[in-house]
Design a protein around this nucleic acid. Structure first.
Length: 597
DNA sequence: GCAAGGTC
């Protein structure tokens, strides 16, 4: 076990207990566990390590805590301050207690903007008990012993611009969310009778509302378009190879019947063109959080919320790297070392490929463009011991991560595709075929193996029309599945990988959306909330609202603007929107109230 | 009571 001596009277604070424990194993070697205020403290003589539980402090208004329509506008400027979050008092007491015993504090929080803010929270509390404590910021992105020891050997300082970026986000989100939630809720309650009024909550948020907009969009599109379509299905018989089915969709009934009649008259279909070509199917790029969640949902049918929590668990147990990452490049990842570990994997298929890759003269991973400069792509760190993974979903997810990692190091697959152009009278239709010529990475990555389809046709072949059917179909709105929505949220920069599902859930909890058969269906209330905003203040429901905000927040991280500047710029736009809503408050609240059931 | 972001 690697071992690093920390100076005496050192305090190490991590973002969560499991990381603290891993740090203790690596930094202390031998340690004892004691409890203070119920929190496990790992210690060796006068070195103490423990984990907090995310943010300890939260921003809130210092005044106007009671809800009233007349004071809402004052929240644009009202005083805000940090409070100890519910249940976090014990961490405050623990930090104070051990800071007062310590000479040095190592801020071993996650290496991202929120972690930086938490580092500031911890330091602020520590200094309140021991103003002379010397702070170091340690940065690491996996629990790999070598990386951790390196991080502690070369400690950094707090990046104050990162802290300010997080603080900017907090203030903007608090003021905008609270102001518009109170405004909508209180004005609509006046038009709702009975007990329902008191529990009614119409919320607004700079993430939840653009998310709702994305969910409502398919409905709005459907509302403007055609409501019916006509599907023509033709079954053809080849003298040697049997039946082939073609389908064509028409918007107009007349077009569909005209085509059907012509096909019935023609009786035969002729292959007028036949193409065969080769298609390279490249391996996937390394896994960032989003690709991870979306692939787990697609390949394994596990909801993204569960996928994230399992990944975090695997990370805490040292099996995989940190799962919250936006990086698609293996910068600094010791690929050969990992492959070497995988050669001991109990699945022969995996160990064999790891061996084969190690024997190759050089390894050229497929890589993407994104790099958040903090955490590498999700990859395996070690092989589980026999029986270590018991939960079936855990096994499947770890397996996917290992296979994905190997796949990114393997060659492309080679496919043969074919396409036949068929003509029945003047009606044209296409048939397609597919064959796998070389498996390449598909050898280890079964999730992407395409369905092979024979298409043994040749130009000039004639097929007989044996059945024709025409069906009128209702066009339904094409509602989004959760993974489609998450893809869109990611593209639009709404929320973080770990909060996207929370925003979806908020929309469901507020009665704006229901989940049915894997689809997200907006309710009349949700639809009309968005319609109202689009009509009056479309900027508040802009799908790009969050990414525009994020760009502004990033200026703070880069030191180009101050928190004060960015907050006041964003709030001035919200103030304009606020005034527009106030002008027509009675009308919109009356309208929305009718959709509250 | 309300936001979004951490973590459980």
């Amino acid at each position: 076990m690697p071992f690093l001596m920390l100076p005496p009277r050192s305090l190490v604070v991590a973002e969560k207990n499991k990381v603290a424990k891993a740090l203790a194993n690596i930094l202390l070697g031998h340690y004892r566990i004691m409890k203070y205020r119920g929190i496990p403290i790992y210690s060796n003589r006068d070195v103490w390590i423990f984990g907090v539980q995310g943010h300890i402090l939260e921003l809130d208004f210092a005044e106007f805590k009671e809800w009233s329509l007349s004071t809402i506008e004052r929240l644009f400027n009202a005083r805000v301050q940090y409070y100890v979050r519910d249940g976090m008092q014990k961490y405050v007491a623990t930090i104070k207690r051990f800071a007062s015993l310590s000479h040095t504090i190592y801020l071993a929080l996650d290496n991202d903007v929120e972690g930086e803010h938490i580092a500031w929270e911890v330091l602020r509390i520590a200094k309140s008990a021991n103003p002379h404590i010397i702070p170091y910021r340690v940065r690491f992105s996996s629990l790999d012993p070598e990386e951790l020891i390196e991080a502690f050997k070369r400690p950094d300082q707090i990046n104050w611009n990162w802290v300010e970026k997080s603080a900017t986000r907090q203030e903007v989100d608090l003021r905008t969310g609270v102001i518009f939630t109170r405004l909508l809720t209180l004005s609509i309650r006046r038009h709702v009778r009975g007990r329902k009024a008191r529990s009614l909550l119409i919320s607004y948020g700079p993430c939840q509302t653009p998310t709702l907009r994305l969910i409502v969009e398919p409905y709005l599109k459907w509302e403007q378009g055609e409501k019916y379509q006509y599907k023509l299905k033709v079954v053809l018989l080849h003298p040697l190879y049997g039946e082939f089915t073609i389908t064509k969709t028409y918007k107009k009934f007349e077009e569909a019947t005209k085509a059907r009649d012509e096909i019935l008259r023609s009786k035969f279909a002729k292959v007028v063109n036949f193409k065969v070509w080769q298609d390279e199917k490249k391996p996937p790029i390394p896994l960032d959080s989003y690709e991870y969640a979306s692939r787990v949902a697609r390949f394994l049918g596990i909801p993204s919320k569960v996928a994230m929590s399992i990944a975090e668990d695997l990370y805490r147990r040292g099996l995989i790297s940190y799962p919250r990452t936006e990086t698609q490049r293996y910068r600094g990842v010791k690929i050969k070392k990992i492959l070497h570990k995988l050669t001991a994997h109990h699945q022969y298929e995996i160990s064999r490929i790891a061996k084969r890759l190690l024997e190759a003269s050089h390894i050229a991973p497929r890589e993407g463009k994104r790099d958040d400069k903090a955490h590498p792509p999700i990859h395996p760190i070690r092989v589980p011991k026999k029986g270590e993974l018991r939960d079936n979903r855990e096994i499947k997810i770890y397996d996917l991560i290992v296979r994905h990692f190997l796949a990114t190091l393997m060659p492309s697959a080679l496919l043969e595709r074919s396409k036949a152009l068929v003509k029945i009278g003047s009606i044209e239709a296409e048939l397609s075929g597919l064959r796998i010529l070389r498996r390449g990475y598909l050898e280890i990555y079964p999730y992407e193996i395409p369905q092979e389809k024979e298409l043994p046709l040749r130009k000039g072949d004639v097929l007989r029309v044996i059945r024709v059917s025409l069906a009128k179909e209702k066009i339904k709105p094409r509602y989004l599945s959760e993974s489609e929505l998450i893809k869109l949220m990611r593209a639009k920069g709404i929320g973080t990988d770990s909060t996207m599902h929370e925003h979806i859930h908020t929309n469901i909890a507020r009665g704006y959306v229901i989940r049915r058969k894997g689809k997200l269906i907006p309710t009349p209330l949700g639809i009309n909330l968005i319609k109202t905003l689009l009509d009056l203040t479309p900027e508040l429901a802009d799908v790009d609202l969050r990414s525009k905000m994020e760009q502004a927040f990033s200026l703070v991280a880069e030191g180009m603007k101050t928190k004060k500047e960015v907050v006041s710029e964003i709030l001035s736009k919200y103030r304009e929107a606020f005034n527009k809503v106030m002008d027509r408050l009675d009308l919109i609240s009356r309208t929305l109230a009718t959709y509250v059931r």
